[in-house]
Design a protein around this nucleic acid. Structure first.
Lengths: 145, 145
DNA sequence: CAACTATATATAGCACGGCAATATATTCGG
DNA sequence: CCGAATATATTGCCGTGCTATATATAGTTG
């Protein structure tokens, strides 16, 4: 709790794709499901969700259909294969990002008293390398921020 | 590597504050130091850094002075107490954010084969709660995304 | 039964953050 | 001597997420 909305920028599409991974959902259900599963921390607004879903649909990452039960119609969304690939890629990206930030913040955990360092490094690379010039050490295909 | 720039949004101020925690730095030094310490992954551009520094200065989170050695003058930045407090708060926020996202992504690690789940949960709360209505369970002072 | 809240989807416009581009000036290496 | 690296700064653009608004139905409460 108590964190800036700006942090979530760039990971919202990943959150939405993640909700769909366990099966088809309709829009409003994604809102409540995300809020519930995050213990009320991630409360995406409708005006944020629907544009994301429409973009995913346009890019064929989800297939959709209407459940017209008379009255409050629901639009259902399910991952396509392209959507699953996108989810995998986005998730991998996020873990790379989180590991990098965590590595940079690691020295702080000792000197400052951070209340809840709930995320810990698993011991895998990227390793906590010293101040070497890393530009030259990087694999050629890696993309920057 | 290979991750979207949008992910870094909202955590850049934290990165900059983090660089200053180990001592005073001048602007250009922050660029190279961040790039180096992140193994070339976080390459903030000058057009991004200086506005952040100016904002921090304006908010009295850093104190500054010029090193006028004739010619290429350097502007040095050092954390104030307010800056340290800001750093602590931002870092705590980030760990909350990362723990939350990680909790939401946890089911994926089993079903999809994510290449490098380098960030692992430390076992601390927030716990992997089931689909309860969490809205009611939250402490009153917590802020949402 | 009326009013309000929750369910359900959609879109236009705004705010803000980070980047590209540009400007200026000095120092170092080839 | 000229280009690259060092060093700081600003303007304008673009993408993302939110606010506000619109529409419609179902349930709940006074």
């Amino acid at each position: 709790m108590t964190f800036d909305r700006e942090l979530l920028r760039g990971s919202l599409e990943l959150m939405v794709l993640g909700e769909l991974q366990s099966g088809a959902r309709y829009g409003y259900q994604i809102l409540t499901s995300l809020s519930s599963r995050s213990c009320g921390r991630v409360n995406i607004k409708a005006g944020t969700l629907y544009p994301i879903l429409h973009k995913l649909e346009q890019e064929s990452c989800v297939r959709t259909w209407w459940d017209e039960q008379g009255g409050r119609d629901r639009k259902w969304y399910a991952l396509t294969e392209a959507g699953e690939a996108r989810l995998r890629r986005n998730a991998t990206e996020w873990f790379d990002y989180a590991a990098t930030v965590q590595m940079l913040l690691a020295p702080l955990l000792d000197s400052l008293s951070i209340a809840r360092p709930v995320v810990a490094d698993s011991g895998q690379p990227p390793a906590r390398l010293p101040q070497v010039d890393a530009q030259a050490l990087r694999p050629p295909n890696s993309r920057d921020f």
